[in-house]
Amino acid sequence: MDKVLATLHSLAGKRLVIGVPYVWLLLFFVVPFLIVFKISFSWMQPIQPGYAPLFAWVEETQRFVATLNLSNYQVLLQDSLYLSTFLYSVKVAAISTVLCLLVGYPMAYAIARCGPSTRNLFLMLIILPFWTSFLLRVYAWVGLLKTNGVINNTLLALGIIDQPLTLLYTDFAVYIGIVYSYLPFMILPLFSNLEKHDLTLLEAASDLGASPMKAFFKVTLPLSMPGIVAGCLLVFIPAVGEFVIPSLLGRTDQLMIGTVLSAQFFSARNWPVASAVAIVLLLLLLLPILLFQRYQRRELEAAKR
């Protein structure tokens, strides 16, 4: 009997241990999305809490009435502002991701081919800015890109230009900001992939007559595909919903979706429309997020071997 109790005990203990993070994440991560989903179908209400209940008890008819409001989504479809904002956000995120890859790949490659001690030094240098404030690093670019900022002043002083360039509040500034902030997220998965490559593969390729260039494109690049995909997803997904970078560096005539969502929420106080925007954004990113999760699972399984 004791034995039976002990097994039950350990089983219950196990359940309890699993239950702690499970309940937390359900309550604070999953339920919130359900609430957002629900509110995206309700009417706006000028008083707190800012939205009307979906189900209401109606005295006269003595029954619950569900008021499902699809107009929040209709707004998104009809108002061309939303459509162009979504498209613009995806475009900015995509271009930034590609730029980030172009900058990050050679860096990750160079670090992966270094000796072990210099490798650690470079990795530290890549990660170090990440530990300092993200906001301040974006802000630093304001000082650099301004009309009378460091870049313009330098170029003017060197006589390369005689009129200051408009750098700040442009698409270019947003690309720079995103590449700058997310570069470590691109480099690290690329590095951990490239580091594992068997260098004798390249020797074999050159032994079989491939030029270094050809060996790179036929061997290294295809093998680093998982790292490329992971890095790109880690940059692209958050960049689509980016809010801080476009509000400090971006255009004022074309907003990104994160900015619109915040504006709907804080300035227009239209919570139902903001919720609908969030739901559409989430659906848009669902596929990339699932892809990323698949990658993450594989990485952890590979680490087990």
């Binding site: 359900l26 919130p32 997904i237 919903g241 919720s275 954004l281 999760q293």
Partner: peptide, 22 residues
């Protein structure tokens, strides 16, 4: 559980923010 622990890694902050507030 594994999905719930990896999703916040890439979730755009505005979405997490609005969901939390609501």
């Amino acid at each position: 559980l594994s999905a719930m622990t990896t999703a916040p890694l890439v979730m755009p902050e505005v979405i997490t923010g609005i969901a939390m507030l609501l």
